[in-house]
Design a protein around this nucleic acid. Structure first.
Lengths: 185, 185
DNA sequence: CTCGTGTGAGACATTTGTGTCTCAAACGAG
DNA sequence: CTCGTTTGAGACACAAATGTCTCACACGAG
């Protein structure tokens, strides 16, 4: 017997490797029957929206936890750097469980979700911009591009992990250093 | 009247912003009727597979054009660096037209396409490894991770361009420098 | 002009997955 | 043990998209 949370967790993990899985497949992945899945979620869309919202909730929690606005407003370069590092590590850890939302069509194309995502990205870009002003991050690239680069490397992290190309324990530092230092020698 | 190539081009561009577009939508995007689309492609799957194959063809052409194996085997750091830069620029330009294949389910989950993609990635990772050996690229990250990072930044580039967050003419250098130098100051 | 060919709209059949519901069985509480 | 609740399998309805086909019309070649 699976709780609603357990169903959501199982579904979102299954969707990472099988993005077009049927509701029957998702029910099986959660160890329940399809009728039971429907008792919890009225439709496929409701399930996918809720998965996307959980991912946005997690992102929001990450930003809240570090109090991103206060850090950005502090003007303290070291504090901003530490915050960026903490966030990046946290995102990489999250990508394993929540990574489906990075590329799922419902998550990326539903108006309300898109708007919520943009709002969270704006908060984060505040931090990137503060990093640029305090000399932590380079100024010659748009702050918003940094947000995209973070996103792209998270997609890469999710896929590298899924493909077994990278060890789970290496991934946070690997992604962080790739973002921060790049790949040149 | 659209040629087969024109239909493919229109479809793959439309799919970037509307990944779940119906065949009717894709036909409209190409300026033809759905019956005509079916005269060219027996099924949706055939259309999507062909789009994916075109993208892989382009990637292959890029690798062939620079003769990636010869460059990797040359042991010449400068030559390798120039080749990496040339490829990266080319990939970013390609992302606008061929970017759908980066995340399309048919492209990423069809066995034969997956295998072809892995083979091309292997060729490219040869170059990354050669870059590491010659001191162009850092050695403390897996060569294969560099391939993933390239992929992730291309997804980011496609989306940033689609979102209008970055100017088209700035994108190649922006992506390259993010990959090479990272975002730290 | 005629004629052959290609086209798109539309009708219809099929498919797949989703949504809805029933019911026998399982399960846990008392 | 009984009884109320939950469950999953399975049947069925529905919907959207795909696949198939027809036919009137458009178009270009001769």
């Amino acid at each position: 017997m699976a709780t609603r949370e357990e169903i959501l967790s199982a579904a979102q993990r299954h969707l990472i490797s099988e993005p077009t899985a049927s509701l029957g497949d998702l029910a099986s992945a959660a160890g329940i029957g399809r009728a039971t899945l429907h008792r919890h979620f009225a439709s496929r869309d409701e399930l996918l929206v809720e998965i996307a919202e959980r991912s946005l909730d997690r992102w929001q929690e990450r930003l809240d936890h570090v109090d991103v606005e206060a850090v950005a407003a502090s003007g303290d370069g070291e504090r901003i750097r530490a915050c960026l590092i903490e966030l990046m590590h946290a995102y990489v850890l999250d990508a394993e469980e929540f990574g489906v939302a990075l590329t799922d069509h419902v998550a990326t194309h539903t108006r309300a979700l898109r708007e919520r995502c943009d709002a969270l990205l704006d908060r984060e870009v505040l931090l990137h911009a503060a990093g640029q002003e305090t000399g932590v991050l380079r100024r010659d690239v748009p702050a918003r591009w940094i947000g995209h680069a973070v996103y792209g490397l998270l997609v890469a992290a999710r896929d590298a992990l899924e493909a077994g190309d990278v060890a789970r324990r290496d991934l946070p530092d690997l992604v962080l250093t790739t973002l921060v230092d790049g790949v040149s020698a």
